[in-house]
Design a binder for these strands. Sequence first.
DNA 1: TTGTTTTTTTACCATTTGGTAAATCCACGA
DNA 2: TCGTGGATTTACCAAATGGTAAAAAAACAA
Lengths: 208, 208
Amino acid sequence: MPESTAKKPSRIQRRNRRVILDAALEVFSKHGYRGATLDQIAAEAGLSKPNILYYFNGKEDIHVTLLSQLMETWLDPLVELDPDGDPRREILDYVERKLTMSRELPRESRLFANEILQGAPRIEPELHRHLKPLFDEKCAVIAGWVSEGKLPPLDPQHLIFSIWATTQHYADFEAQAQVLLEPETDPRPRAQAHLQAMFGALLDLPAQ
Amino acid sequence: MPESTAKKPSRIQRRNRRVILDAALEVFSKHGYRGATLDQIAAEAGLSKPNILYYFNGKEDIHVTLLSQLMETWLDPLVELDPDGDPRREILDYVERKLTMSRELPRESRLFANEILQGAPRIEPELHRHLKPLFDEKCAVIAGWVSEGKLPPLDPQHLIFSIWATTQHYADFEAQAQVLLEPETDPRPRAQAHLQAMFGALLDLPAQ
DNA sequence: TTGTTTTTTTACCATTTGGTAAATCCACGA
DNA sequence: TCGTGGATTTACCAAATGGTAAAAAAACAA
């Protein structure tokens, strides 16, 4: 019973749990929680369905484990925002890291987007536990920069929302961009230029 | 057979189709296509399941009808962008209309977000037929303003993406905002100020 | 009222899907 | 080599779900 009181997991257990979670990421991010089936995950993982249920307590367990495990990766770019760095540089670099992440981890982006869209029923506790404190901390950092006159007066919370929205857009709404832009071409180089110009302009605003 | 060669639909037919589509909007926007069930829609509409299937050919028919019918409403704010207006005013007003729409029609926003996130399997033809031409047209308008020197050099396509992303964010990711901001409080007044400042700064950039 | 058409309900059905029990297989240490 | 516990498969099941057939009811035209 790998799920009971944590003994040390065997090599096989670690490998298969990883294989399953990777397959689940693929399937959940493509079809959403309800749209994904254990059979699809099993096929993607190359394992049988009962075998998957040997490693996890059920569909929801897989989903929650996946979200929890990816939360850290997902928040990493924001963690790196340095209170002691140059404010303008720090924020523009954060935009760039987020955009890079939307290119390199689009499945993770869509996984979170799906979960939030449904009202975050399974990840809400994690949001309170990990996202909220980090968000508050970094908002305070930015607010500090503003009050020190190192940045023009701006709304830290909504600035961060704008960064999330604009960068994740390229992963979450990729299907739309495929229709509207040249397909087969990554729009992110031009997106990068645009976003740097846009947030740069906001940060360069003269103090009120 | 209301579905066959279009006779004039009766009063009952018009009413019930409207009731069903409204119920479907509620359910689909909350749970996504796969997450929604005909039973839920029937309960929400106050009709029996077979009765619903009397008015529509199936679950997918309801979904496609809903998306098609809402497409016009959804694109309306962009249609209103006037080539003969003041460029800066036109774009900032468009931002405001989109933000207002995300407050007044959040279900519609989430319905589209869900569909696009899944790869737009059922709405792709509509995107090509309605969204693409409008998008190209308005991009050309903005590009014209730029080349006339009425706007600083900017990327029309990605500008529009940024407007979509930032405004719809408040409907699509409402669950996240609920965790991070004061619940029970509409963040949009402050969002409005932030977005006007941000896009205003971009549009006020000196010509290169 | 009566006959006809439209609308609604009742009673189902086949498939899908998350999940389980139990038998079997297999890796590995003694 | 053999035994034991972990890993995997086989064969299922119950509930949910999209959908249908046909009877009953309601609406409506004459």
